[in-house]
Simulated scan of single mutants.
Amino acid sequence: MSADAEQHGRNRPIRCLIAKVGLDGHDRGAHVIARAFRDAGFEVVYSGLHRAPDEIVQAAVQEDVDVLGISILSGAHNSLVPKVVDGLKRHGAFADTLLIVGGIIPEEDRPELRDLGVAAIFGPGTPMEETIEFVRENAPRRE
């Protein structure tokens, strides 16, 4: 058991999938957050580039993740994130998965994403510790 899991009253580390959805080819931020999450003691799976929403859902379900972080910079968040949410719901995984989004999401689009069930949206420049603490405080306690 990791020190982070023990410190936060879990039997296992928080398991995260960092996913790049759609045609967005910019993955530096996804790599940075994946590394920061690993350094924080989380187990991290990275999807790789250009994943379809269904591929992301399948990976989240198969990996039994606690957290799904979608990194999106393409501007297609209003069409791709709902597809991921729908897929998680179809597989019965939505209620047990903390969904967060990172990237350039205009303020006017954020309420709609939150209404879908996105727990948090992190834009460029968000301190890494803020994101890590949010995940620690909000990840489902599945053992």
Rank of each mutant, 00 (worst) to 15 (best):
L23R: 12
L23F: 08
D24E: 10
G25P: 07
G25M: 04
H26W: 10
H26E: 08
D27Y: 07
G29V: 02
G29I: 09
A30V: 06
A30G: 11
A30S: 13
V32Q: 00
V32P: 00
A34S: 14
R35Y: 12
A36K: 12
F37D: 08
F37Q: 09
A40T: 01
A40Y: 08
A40H: 08
G41Y: 07
E43A: 07
V44A: 06
V45G: 00
Y46H: 15
H50F: 15
A52S: 11
A52T: 15
A52E: 15
P53N: 09
V57I: 13
Q58D: 14
Q58E: 13
V61G: 05
E63Q: 14
E63D: 08
E63F: 03
D64P: 06
V65W: 04
V65M: 05
V65D: 06
D66T: 05
D66W: 03
G69K: 05
G69M: 08
I70S: 05
S71A: 10
I72L: 08
I72V: 15
L73Y: 11
L73T: 07
L73F: 15
S74C: 12
G75P: 01
A76M: 13
H77K: 14
S79D: 10
S79V: 15
L80F: 10
V81W: 02
V81G: 02
V81K: 07
P82K: 04
P82C: 02
K83D: 11
V84E: 03
V84L: 03
D86Y: 12
G87R: 02
G87N: 07
L88K: 04
L88Q: 01
K89C: 06
R90I: 06
R90A: 10
A93V: 05
F94E: 06
F94L: 13
A95W: 09
A95Y: 11
A95H: 08
T97W: 05
T97E: 03
T97V: 02
L99N: 03
